[in-house]
Amino acid sequence: MKKLIISALIVLSAFSCSKDHPIDDDGLLITPRQECYVSNFELLGADYLTVLTKQPVIDTTAQTVSVIVQFGTDLKNLFPQFTLASDCKLDPRIVGKVDFSDLANPKEYTVISGNRQISKTYKVLITVQPR
């Protein structure tokens, strides 16, 4: 019995120390994936309801996300939500409300692939629905 326990401990220690799964500065797993794109986008108002009038148009070539928001949307207090390809991460990270009111200078977000070798910067282009 003693031998069995000791052997199990040795095996566990060996596995826990292996460095086959590297992580990045954010503590996220680095994987072999190369995909790097935005697959969906949502924009919520301060009341946590969508402000979009229709589905966003995501151009992965031009690297833009184009949306039309409802008339009267408070552009200073919005919560963007990105859906990314597997294992990708976003920079800058979204930690709360974002001010999108400067329509002349669209906000930019960089998508970084799972292998952390590829990055693509997307612009979020907002159009306000007319009254």
């Binding site: 409802q70 008339f71 009267g72 629905q129 007319p130 009254r131």
Partner: peptide, 22 residues
């Protein structure tokens, strides 16, 4: 009742942009 946008019921400040006080 504006057909081109969702306006419906509103509480607007007197000082708000005129487009919100049609």
């Amino acid at each position: 009742n504006i057909t081109t946008s969702a306006y419906n019921f509103a509480l607007v400040s007197p000082a708000a942009d005129a487009q919100y006080l049609p």
